[in-house]
Each structure stands twice: as C-alpha cells, then as structure tokens.
C-alpha cells in the first residue's frame, strides 16, 4: 500500500486513545490543595518566572468538581485528612493526584502524633514529587512525568 505523507493527504491518522490522551495531558485543570511551606514553591512555579502555563496546567480550579489533577501541596495533618478525602471523592473521573513535597509522600521528618505518614494511606497517588520543599524545576519535572502517565494511560471512556 502506498504511504502518503502528511502534505499529500492534508491529515494524519492516529488512535482515538492517543488523541484523547494528548488532549487531556495539555489541559490539566488542577486543584491546588495548599496547606504549608510547599505552597510558597507552588506559587513560584505558577508565576511568571517558571510559568507552569507552558504545560497547559496554568489554570487552577478551586472547585474539585471542575478539576482533573489534585495537587496536594504541604503537610496533611490528621485533622485535615478527612477533608482531603472528601475533596478527592468529589472530583470527577478521570482524575490524578500529585503528592507535592516529602510530607505528602511519606510524612517527611514530621513523624509525630499529628501528621499523616504519606497521603497514599488515604488516597491513591500518581506522581510523587519529593523535596522539602521541591524546587520549581522538580515540580515541572513531576508535571511532565504526569503528562507521560496521562498519555500512556488506557482508560475506558
């Protein structure tokens, strides 16, 4: 069979899965669940210097029902844990969770009576960004990892 180039056909073929995933990964509506120190680096990442908008993730939505990605930024205490779970449950599928900072990954150096030892004990996590707090470059790297994950994900829709 003769293979035509893009210029000849004026179009190209792809799998629907890939197309949908491609569209999804560049339209990340994030819900920033900001609690602590990491919020400062989240702010730095979101603002003009690092410009998270380049990755199609520039628009935070402050309603979980409109968000795709839950950014859990900062220490989660046991008092706050039910709230986090509640927010996660309100998000519509497909949804992803990014654990931002080492406190959300493992509890960090807050091994005490008040702190949740990693949010993955409460909700599933897709990407872990360690660091206390992670530098904006780490965050962008984590975001790109998340995009890769969204691209190859097989989801029923």
């Amino acid at each position: 069979m003769e293979v035509k180039t893009l210029e000849q056909t004026g179009g190209f073929t792809s799998k629907l899965d890939d197309m949908v995933a491609w569209a999804r990964k560049f339209s990340i509506f994030q819900y920033p669940f900001i609690t602590a120190c990491c919020g400062m680096e989240y702010m730095s990442t979101a603002c003009s210097h690092y410009d998270v908008d380049r990755f199609g993730a520039g628009l935070p939505r402050f309603s979980p029902r409109q968000a795709d990605v839950l950014f859990v930024v900062g220490t989660i205490s046991h008092k706050l844990a039910p709230v986090l779970k509640h927010i996660y449950d309100q998000m519509a599928d497909p949804k992803w969770v990014v654990a931002f900072g080492v406190c959300t990954c493992t509890g960090g150096f807050y091994n005490n009576y008040a702190t949740v030892q990693g949010i993955d004990t409460i909700i599933p996590v897709d990407v872990y960004i360690p660091g206390c707090p992670p530098r904006p470059e780490y965050v962008l790297d984590g975001l790109m990892k998340l995009q890769e994950k969204i691209q190859i994900e097989k989801k029923a829709y």
């Binding site: 602590a36 150096f109 807050y110 005490n112 009576y113 008040a114």
Partner: peptide, 22 residues
C-alpha cells in the same frame, strides 16, 4: 489547627542543633 505539626513536641525529642530545621 489544621496544620498542627507538633513542633514543640519534636523539639523535645531531638538535640538543640536538630531543632533548627524545624
């Protein structure tokens, strides 16, 4: 109290120098 991370309790567990990062 939603971000209570027990700084004061931690400080009692570690040495004087180890409190600095907290």
């Amino acid at each position: 109290g939603y971000l209570h991370r027990a700084f004061e309790k931690h400080a009692e567990q570690d040495g004087y120098l180890q409190v600095i990062p907290y």
